[in-house]
Amino acid sequence: MTTVESSLSRAQPGLRARLDVPRRITLAAALVVIGAVALLLGFIVWRGLQLFVASGVPVAQIFTTAWQPDPLSAGTNYGLLPFIGGTLAVMAVAAVIATPLSVGLALFLAEVAPGWARRIVQPAMEVFVGIPSVVYGWLGLVVLVPYLRTQFGWMGFATGFSWFAGSLVLSLMILPTITSISYDAFVVVPADMRSASLALGTTRWQAIRHVVLPTAATGVATAIVFGLMRAAGEALAVQMVIGNAPVIPTSLARPVTTLTSQITLDMSDATGTWNEALWTMGLVLLIISLTFVLIIRRLGRRSTPA
């Protein structure tokens, strides 16, 4: 096919180039994506830097812990560490809860499940993906938070709104992400490698542990990073159950806050420097997700030659 095409273009290059309107139109459509990214980066970086540029807040200040944002009160301080710390903490615990379940489920689907079980679990995962994040948040608010308050008050869950509630809700939301990407990593492990292991007399579990898991390790790592990325960026569901207290997270049972939930809460009311600080939080979020994209790219490159 390529040869037909290239000989055609060699035969009449001028004419082809001039007549190729469809190529230009489709290219223009594809370029909209680059335009959107450029605009997005431009706006978020520009507005995110105003805290330092326009209001003269020293960059070092955002790495402090005190959040006193109201410009009308004396002594403002725009410490973003509680938000960055909260985002990382909630994300990490969500991944700790979701990873064993997701990887286990992916292994089940790829290695263990008989056909009928797969026909139940796979559509169920699609339903999982389809549940919108506000619905998880609402469920967390009316079921999980009261449950933690009434049943686990003795463990320090004074109100139920907590780091743990946020992580648990998030873990449900990232479970399908980690499952589907690790599943893809498991199914591409060549069947020959499994057969070779089984032929040596290993059990299925030994084949999984010593052959399938090591071969798919990079893919599973990619899956977890995708999960972390989604967890760091999720806003509304977390905001609804986390309690929104701007403190450095120290206890799973206490309210904390995240970058996303503070933006959600304050954006419509905050003015002046306070508002600028919210844009800076947006910029920090963007930097976090860019970091994840680069990690995923690096992992992808590592897995390609294998």
Partner: peptide, 13 residues
């Protein structure tokens, strides 16, 4: 990149 940017950040944009 866009598919990785949190939706709240897209909202800010």
């Amino acid at each position: 990149l866009i598919s990785s940017v949190p939706s709240i950040v897209v909202g800010l944009f």
